[in-house]
Nucleic acid binder design. Structure first.
Lengths: 262, 262
DNA sequence: ATGCCTTTGTGAACGCGTGCACAAAGATTG
DNA sequence: CAATCTTTGTGCACGCGTTCACAAAGGCAT
């Protein structure tokens, strides 16, 4: 059953920058951009770290992977660092992006201001609903799925955003990959199988909420002199014997990615 | 200033379940639910792992933290496991949730089907725009920010979703926390400061795209028989001397969370 | 019952990420 | 130019998370 790796096998240690550090660079960049707009010339690791919500030692170590860009006794030059990080992240070039699945979420994403600002440009909006074709969303006309391959190849798009229902995600993903996409941001609640070399990042509202619920439950059951844990009833059954009878519920687990595409 | 921790200080090792494992439980649950709907009685760690997109050894170790729910030589009882994981995640109870900031994204979230299915219920939609008050979104009337405290206390809400512009996020966050919220899902592109005991999880489109861009650039510069690394030109300047002259660009970095709240 | 086959549960090794703590570097002042 | 003070850059240790590899457990057939 077609599994397919997606997490980068090794550390992606190409030249050395750790994955964890890469994930924080955008955070630093955002904080630095804010400082830059306020015309602040330099920042210490301490100040910047606090602005980015991390520990200063971590920040210094992160920057050390990029090179020695600071000045001891002074700090870091804001403008210079903004440039260096932007370059490292590949933000000095333009990245055309396509969004597939123009429902509530897809539309919200299309309207996102943060796209254009940092090197990302919405090259096209794609949806399977013929009724949407031609209608402008965020000023961009929606195109039909049939055009997918052509759009990607014509615009040299390498990053795709999937905002379709879970059921269509894998299929869309396969087409995107076949058309040349090598990076995917997936909002559909499904595990995507992709060939080696293709990066997939997942954004899943439902999962985030469940993680919060876990901690919330944990807090509720310990902090106050709360009862030992009523445990809502231990109905089910021992390992390999009976079977709980909770009905399969509605089929609506999270079929749609925080939205319905029309 | 005003830093404030947000990552759980320790390992949240309350009774022992590692954070990394908690983050995967929703994945397993989703896969199990799908099997359950197809009336599959049991699964082996290998099958389930592949369905969830993880390695089987990891899955077994994860389950081992919950207890020994499998049967050697057979596998795991689907229904039983669904129940156990649901209980562990706190999904056997109902979690009222409030969404603050009803713009494109907030509306998309309100329409999300995955909410209701797994124990989450949208208790209220809140926005600062008086013009939205009373208007129904996803069948629920939007209420004004003034009512925030009352709504939360009346409904016993402990989980809040922030989908406001970055500028309003911290303020909204503070009010939510003061009103009793202890878990926050933040879609605004800002670092939130919260007191100890409050959990914050962040969803940031812009950051995800930047991480993808990093890897994309990496791929483009290595895979083909590319030269040793041209380094795009060392334009800027040495650490503490000159200053690049890139204009502060537009102020639009990512002020809005993939949407504008009215 | 006995033996074989399958699959779990986990001990142990390894590697990444984090944070401490400090030496080195540079600015700044007298 | 020397002394002092600030802040970076990093060696080191520790802990979490992942993966391997295998013994133990249970089912099943003979």
């Amino acid at each position: 059953m077609a599994t397919g790796r997606n997490h980068r096998p090794a550390t992606s240690r190409s030249r050395g920058i750790p994955e964890a550090t890469v994930a924080r660079l955008p955070l630093y960049l955002r904080a630095l951009t804010a400082l830059s707009e306020r015309s602040v010339p330099t920042v210490s690791s301490e100040e910047l770290a606090s602005a980015a919500g991390v520990n200063s030692a971590k920040l210094r170590k992160d920057f050390s992977y990029l090179g020695s860009y600071g000045t001891r006794g002074v700090g870091y030059d804001v403008e210079y660092l903004v440039y260096q990080i932007s370059r490292e992240l590949g933000l000095t070039q333009d990245w055309p992006v396509v969004i597939v699945g123009i429902g509530n979420l897809g539309a919200a994403l299309a309207n996102y201001g943060g796209f254009a600002s940092r090197g990302f440009r919405v090259a096209a909006l794609i949806d399977a609903d013929p009724g949407l074709s031609g209608k402008p969303v965020a000023g961009i006309p929606v195109q039909h799925t049939d055009e997918l391959e052509k759009i990607i190849s014509d615009n040299g798009v390498s990053i795709g955003v999937i905002a379709t229902p879970a059921g269509a995600a894998q299929q869309v993903c396969d087409r995107l990959v076949a058309a040349g996409i090598t990076s995917i941001l997936n909002f559909a609640p499904t595990v995507l199988s992709v060939p080696e070399g293709v990066d997939v990042r997942k954004v899943d509202l439902s999962i985030e909420l469940q993680i919060l619920a876990f901690h919330e439950q944990r807090k509720a059951g310990e902090e106050p002199g709360a009862p030992p844990e009523t445990d809502t009833a231990p109905p089910a059954a021992p390992p390999a014997v009976s079977v709980a009878k909770r009905p399969p519920e509605s089929g609506t687990d999270g079929d749609l990615p925080a939205v319905m595409p029309a």
